[in-house]
Design a binder for these strands. Sequence first.
DNA 1: CTAAGGTTCGTACCCGGGTACGGAGTCAAG
DNA 2: CTTGACTCCGTACCCGGGTACGAACCTTAG
Lengths: 132, 132
Amino acid sequence: MREESYTVGRLAKKAGVNVETIRYYQRRGLLPIPASLPGSVRRYSVKYLERLRFIKRSQQLGFTLDEAAELMALSEGYGCSVACGVAERRLADVERKIADLAAIQQSLRRLVGRCHENPPETPCPLVDAIAN
Amino acid sequence: MREESYTVGRLAKKAGVNVETIRYYQRRGLLPIPASLPGSVRRYSVKYLERLRFIKRSQQLGFTLDEAAELMALSEGYGCSVACGVAERRLADVERKIADLAAIQQSLRRLVGRCHENPPETPCPLVDAIAN
DNA sequence: CTAAGGTTCGTACCCGGGTACGGAGTCAAG
DNA sequence: CTTGACTCCGTACCCGGGTACGAACCTTAG
């Protein structure tokens, strides 16, 4: 019976990330570096896999790596209101970005539309609008 | 009537950008570098100001610097359909980003909501949902 | 025991869009 | 003619999130 512990390569495969990504997270302080008997290969327990997955899911929710680290730190303990605050700031940011993009979308749609109505061999209304 | 020409600093101020930004655009090939009599200060005509403004407005519409360059190149001539294509690709990209962000927004809203209903001294539903 | 392939570590590089620094040259006012 | 402000140019650095490389170890199958 083997208590499951992985080498970086196996951990990476299991988590669906690149080995280099794991090392990057370690450098960033997001993932602890397991102690190794000197001159041997490091072993990663399931804990590391869980942490990795936590980071990946945080990213899917739009959190930055620093926020992921913060949320993980809060996961031990009752930092719910703090975690919630992080999420609310992220949400506000996401909403601001959506609004910005929506404005851009509007303008682009309008310009593309005018472009399509444009008779051939006449100046491009899109380029014109930008140049003005 | 004197034709106006600027030094980089004045051009930058007029366009509301940093001097370094102008140099950066020059390195990128977005803005030509005016010839100068050797060992003297370069002079920038209103053309440069117009180009700078074109770039800035392109950016406001979500175009990358490379796309801005492409659009500028097309502004001399009848490249309307090409320009339109660039804009359509940009629009598609913007719409994809909006959709991605909207999904994130949904999830975050749900999680933040659950977080607020959470009685004190119980595990955080937000953190829980990520850790799963 | 040896060879192949995995791991470790440092370091450098990628993207996009700039910002910052610093020495040397130039220009204009006093 | 000097002083101070501005310009020129190369180079390095910032952010975020990684990717890539290479040399030297370690491990494991045959």
